[in-house]
């Protein structure tokens, strides 16, 4: 009797509960990604006005550093750091890299590659659509936009290669690969490299 009860009632219930839990947690990731972007972009707007760093919510351990626009897609606000917590809320700026604007007021040739990473299934879903020649824009804290042109894309094995950060300006967008894959934590990474376009060369449409 016990076995029948187990198999008839409990097992299906357990399975359904687990399923609902998985569904909820997956949806939560998506909802969190969307909602936080809303909050963060508000913080970004405030920051643009105030000129000081504004945390999107009081207990946040990261803060917005730039706004990124991939081609014609919806703009995303980039956060400082690439820890798991930061990436859950938005694209993150790699600590070893730097924004193109930070060095400019130093009045020197101090330049580094800008590396921005995000999850392939949340914010960087649209990375797949970027192709050579498309435009990417990055907005600084002072409101100026830096324009980039996509040079190409590449897939690398992260266990064998390191991030190509050097003392050249450029934007490197990183996300996981393959895009539709079910398993997380695979070794492949999808890179989009864009080179800066001088302001004069940008044609306003």
């Amino acid at each position: 009797m016990n076995r029948t009860w187990l198999s008839k009632r409990l097992l299906p219930l357990l399975l359904i509960a687990a399923g609902v839990w998985q569904l909820a947690s997956a949806s939560w990731i998506l909802v969190k990604a969307e909602l936080s972007q809303y909050l963060i972009s508000r913080a970004w707007e405030r920051q643009l006005h105030a000129g000081e760093i504004q945390k999107p919510w009081p207990w946040a351990d990261t803060w917005p550093v730039a706004r990124l626009k991939l081609d014609q897609q919806k703009p995303l606000v980039v956060l400082q750091g690439i820890t798991g917590e930061a990436l859950a809320f938005g694209p993150g700026l790699h600590e070893a890299s730097a924004l193109p604007f930070a060095q400019e007021h130093a009045g020197n040739t101090s330049v580094r590659t800008t590396v921005i990473a995000a999850h392939r299934d949340t914010h960087f879903r649209g990375l797949e659509k970027l192709q050579a020649g498309m435009g990417v824009q990055l907005q600084a804290r002072d409101g100026r936009w830096q324009h980039y042109r996509v040079l190409g894309t590449k897939v690398v094995d992260s266990t064998r290669e390191t991030l190509p950060i050097s003392d050249r300006p450029g934007l490197l967008l990183v996300t996981c690969y393959p895009f539709g894959s079910l398993e997380a934590g695979g070794p492949l990474r999808y890179l989009v490299y864009a080179e800066p376009v001088p302001d004069a060369a940008v044609i306003q449409l």
Binding site: L13, G19, L23, A33, D121, V174, A184
Partner: peptide, 24 residues
């Protein structure tokens, strides 16, 4: 210069959820 991990595993979770729900 190591690459960050950049997959939230949403698809995997959805797939598991689907299977579990179907079975249940």
């Amino acid at each position: 210069f190591t690459y960050p991990s950049t997959a939230a595993g949403v698809y995997g979770q959805f797939f598991t959820a689907l299977l579990l729900l179907l079975c249940g």
